[in-house]
Design a protein around this nucleic acid. Sequence first.
DNA 1: TTAATCCATTAACATATGTTAAGTAATGAG
DNA 2: CTCATTACTTAACATATGTTAATGGATTAA
Lengths: 189, 189
Amino acid sequence: MKELFDYFGQLIKLSETEIAAIQKTCSIKKGSKQEIIEAIGSTANAIYFLRSGVVRTFYYKDGIEVTEYFALAGDLVARVKSLLTNKPSAKAIQLLEDGELIAINATQFFELFKTYPNIERLYLLLLEASYIAVVERVENIQFHSAKERYAALILKEELMQKVPLKYIASYLGITQVSLSRIRANSTIS
Amino acid sequence: MKELFDYFGQLIKLSETEIAAIQKTCSIKKGSKQEIIEAIGSTANAIYFLRSGVVRTFYYKDGIEVTEYFALAGDLVARVKSLLTNKPSAKAIQLLEDGELIAINATQFFELFKTYPNIERLYLLLLEASYIAVVERVENIQFHSAKERYAALILKEELMQKVPLKYIASYLGITQVSLSRIRANSTIS
DNA sequence: TTAATCCATTAACATATGTTAAGTAATGAG
DNA sequence: CTCATTACTTAACATATGTTAATGGATTAA
């Protein structure tokens, strides 16, 4: 689980004991392309660290599937609202490539806060970073055109190679038809 | 400061000692309509609780002023990214009505975490709630038309009464002209 | 009070994105 | 390999929002 603890180590220094304690809450989950890791309607109880592959989270809005987030190897994924409220999630987590995840059991992880304040601190730092990321996403969505957002996203080459355009379109908040149009125009110039 | 501790008390039970400790980090700030409480370019070091009045946060995007957030009496306001990174903020906090704020000194507040784990826990709960609110804002922006977002916002009567439409428009991510058009259409139907 | 500025609306036209439908290319199941 | 399905593109038209400009009412400063 070296990758996971490298990731955490960038946020806070953890002792061997703390690492061991977290490790006990973890399990490995392998899956194949298209596989639903957590389904809509289930209550979240894991924070995932993606070791390899690509995953997305998605939900349905007026019967249409909407991609909320992509994660590549080295990213965390969770259905945060459901984790925090203990209510069924409207969102699903799906592998878009064969991949391997480290699943941190949230209940067990939160339990560790009582014994290891440092782990609670780690969680706090993760929350802060996520909060800033979402605020920036709001700014991005609200004040850039779909074309500009696409231009920014295209820089993440790995994503573009591995993710079908229909998911990219719904992530950008536009239809696949609009995305095609944008792609057609931007290659000309 | 009763209102503030009522607000916190809904999230976590605080002891008298803890309340007293937080209270020491607080000061009262009064201001008048239009007054800039924190200016663009300054580094944030306070979390505000609005006792009375209305405030907004805003920033400039390509030379155009963008309203990010409105707070009414009983809400918290902060320039979170700047608080957490200790870097100058691109955002400003402004009163839109005469009002009174409780300013929590962030440095002092964060210091309390060492002595009072419960206060760190309070902060964590505030972060969690804010995170969920921003994620919901993303969903709202990305998958509702400006018209729908306006229809939702109009329900907050106090806001509509006290906030000039130009700020509402920029909060909705549209021009004032578009908002006028939406308003004209929605009153007919 | 007057003049200047700001706020909100409206109109006319431009652009971006949605919707529907059709066609082609790529993928997957048997 | 073949067929069926899925992914992507393109076209035509509809709708939403942007841009610019003009106007009148409200607010503010002198």
